[in-house]
């Protein structure tokens, strides 16, 4: 059974982001995925890289030790789905901290002779399901940093076969109909993921 790691980074259960996360988990399970549902806030993930972790960052023998369970979960996943709100044109700190602390040299990439090479072979599919307060136009003007991080940096580092970015913009003016339409889009995407 293929395994999907779902990283959920919204603190509020009644948010549209949380509803989208529920749809992701349910749709994947319906389609035969085994889901490792990781609610970073509920698990009280600590996003702050410490000075000691920074010192050991490039020492692949020991750098993963402080976050070993999270590294193991990433290594046993065939797909990763990120469910998060965009705040200030970036990921919430708790998700950015997961990148800082878990997406390590020796886990996701190697650096040999100054060259980056992918080394996380198991993850073949990646998706982001996200909500923006910003309008699409303003996000475009800002250069849409969270989208770039996923579609360029993560894509380039992991080299999955498939990557999807499913976003709802302009949350401050959203209508119930558009919420439903977004959730339907998320379900459809996840059913064919």
């Amino acid at each position: 059974m293929p395994r999907a790691l779902v990283l959920f980074a919204h603190p509020v259960p009644e948010s549209l982001g949380a509803a989208a996360h529920d749809v992701v988990v349910e749709a994947l399970q319906t389609r035969g995925w085994e889901v490792d549902d990781c609610d970073l806030n509920a698990e009280r993930f600590d996003p702050v890289m410490t000075a000691q972790e920074r010192r050991n960052y490039h020492d692949t023998a020991i750098n993963a030790a402080p976050v070993q369970p999270y590294v193991d979960r990433l290594r046993s996943a065939d797909a990763v789905v990120f469910c998060f709100p965009v705040w200030n044109f970036g990921y919430p700190a708790i998700l950015k901290g997961w990148f800082d602390r878990v997406m390590l040299p020796g886990v996701v990439f190697t650096i040999a002779h100054g060259k980056l090479a992918p080394c996380l072979d198991n993850v073949r599919k990646i998706a982001a399901v996200t909500t923006y307060g910003s309008t699409p136009w303003r996000a475009f003007l800002a250069g849409d940093p969270p989208k770039r991080l996923l579609k360029r940096a993560v894509w380039g580092t992991v080299r999955p076969d498939k990557i999807r970015y499913i976003a709802q913009y302009d949350m401050n003016n959203i209508t119930p109909d558009r919420c439903e339409a977004f959730l339907a889009r998320v379900r459809k995407e996840m059913e064919v993921f």
Partner: peptide, 18 residues
């Protein structure tokens, strides 16, 4: 710059103070 972005600590400052 970590992972082409702000450290979680600084991103959290934006999230909570702005």
């Amino acid at each position: 710059t970590w992972w082409y972005g702000l450290p979680a600590m600084l991103k959290g400052w934006l999230d909570r103070v702005l």
